[in-house]
Design a protein around this nucleic acid. Structure first.
Lengths: 238, 238
DNA sequence: CGCCGTGTTGACCGCAGTCAAGTGTCGTGG
DNA sequence: CCACGACACTTGACTGCGGTCAACACGGCG
């Protein structure tokens, strides 16, 4: 368990959209300058340390968030108190889409690394989306992306042996990037993502290291043996 | 494996929307009569026997579907050929939302029971959605519903012991309805939904029957002992 | 220094996967 | 009409993977 940090503490000012390097990649790429002006001064920036919650299930939910840097986990809890991580969000991803429907958040969103986000009022985005086809389309695309992710977690990360799941998770983390990985999740989080216990996650990672499938080249810098991991992921050899 | 039935074979005419009992519940509840007219004569109806595919992953994907009666499974396949059922769709649900983004379908959609659907051209729905706020909102709500379902499958149906998973599946099938259940899935499908083997699904169902948690009152009519199933689902006693 | 959180490893055991046989039902064709 | 095969479901026997409980190593921090 980590310290609780309220969003208020994390406020780091009004957003500096004009110079934002993500400007073209994010939700508002297609927004006319006029519309964007309406939105702009409603946007706030926040910086979260690792372990801080961006929002929690019970929260009201009247803001969307786009991630500038960092990684967050989306967590749901079961009746017995155990947790399951249902998705991971990283830079340019949008969180809290459910706020557009006035639903209140469906997960806890918790930073896994130092993270910066922009906060947008849901009402305003919903309004703009109503008569702006490009934003409308962009919102649908975000929803679809989240859905595809969710499906992939089911088929790839909740099926097969522990070796397969861990291998698939590692491969998914580097994806298009090359074979280097800057940070590994805690064993506990890995377990919660893969439906395994902390011990099994630990054992499997340790085994991969021993077999040279995962080499720590520098502190917090890992190199993956992608071909062999891929073979394991597909049900191949040990 | 079941016979392959092409959608062409299943065509059963232009849709009779005016008398459709679902008219108020579906996507177009908020559509003005004029707009709806544009859409209406583009809609076709299909009837699928159990086992037939509504669409497959490879298919182009330029139609949405709304389900009038029946149940479908959405299936994804892994590299090793095994299948995982990622969602179930029933009356009033909308399938193929991804077609709105021109993406091609992401699953195989296969009827589990005799099923009737209406088919809508994706392009037209996308157009209407662009300048119709109510439809726009309705589409977002559908996407969100699918996403919530996907998350629930992860936390409820892919976590815990086989007894817990089967119990949660049964409870989910009756949901708001009362304790009666008209049809049970095949053991194979249950396994694919829960990440279990066919044998384990069979054993667990058989055990529930022996314990009176699941009573077959008539052919294809089951009664659930909801309180006790709920206790099992939450990690309670055997 | 001692504490705490995280990761690792060991020993043991039980649940669920595997392989296989057996039962029941349905549909087809002789 | 019955014989047969196909298929789904059930059940058994065995095994192995991963869960559980516990001890220990390591590093950071008060």
């Amino acid at each position: 368990m980590s310290k609780i940090i309220s969003l208020r503490d994390a406020w780091s000012g009004a957003a500096d959209c004009d110079s934002c390097s993500l400007r073209d990649g994010v939700l508002f790429a297609g927004l006319a300058e006029a519309d964007f002006g309406r939105l702009h001064d409603q946007i706030d920036q926040f910086a979260l340390p690792a372990g801080a919650a961006l929002y929690r299930v019970k929260d009201g939910g009247d803001h969307l968030f786009t991630i500038r840097v960092g990684v967050l986990k989306l967590v749901q809890y079961l009746a017995d108190g155990s947790q399951r991580i249902v998705r991971i969000a990283r830079e340019t991803d949008v969180l809290g889409l459910e706020a557009l429907l006035g639903e209140g958040y469906h997960h806890d969103a918790i930073a896994l690394q130092p993270t910066e986000v922009c906060r947008l009022p849901a009402r305003l985005v919903a309004e703009l989306g109503r008569d702006n086809p490009l934003l409308h389309r962009e919102l649908m695309a975000r929803w679809q992306r989240a859905l595809s992710e969710a499906d992939a977690w089911l088929t790839e990360l909740s099926t097969g042996s522990s070796r397969q799941r861990v291998a698939r998770l590692l491969l998914r983390l580097v994806r298009d990037r090359d074979a280097r990985l800057s940070q590994l999740f805690s064993r506990e989080d890995m377990g919660a993502m893969l439906g395994l216990t902390t011990e099994t996650a630990s054992r499997t990672i340790a085994e991969f290291k021993r077999q040279g499938l995962l080499v720590e080249t520098e502190p917090n810098g890992f190199l993956l043996d992608i071909p062999n991991l891929r073979q394991i992921a597909d049900g191949g050899a040990r």
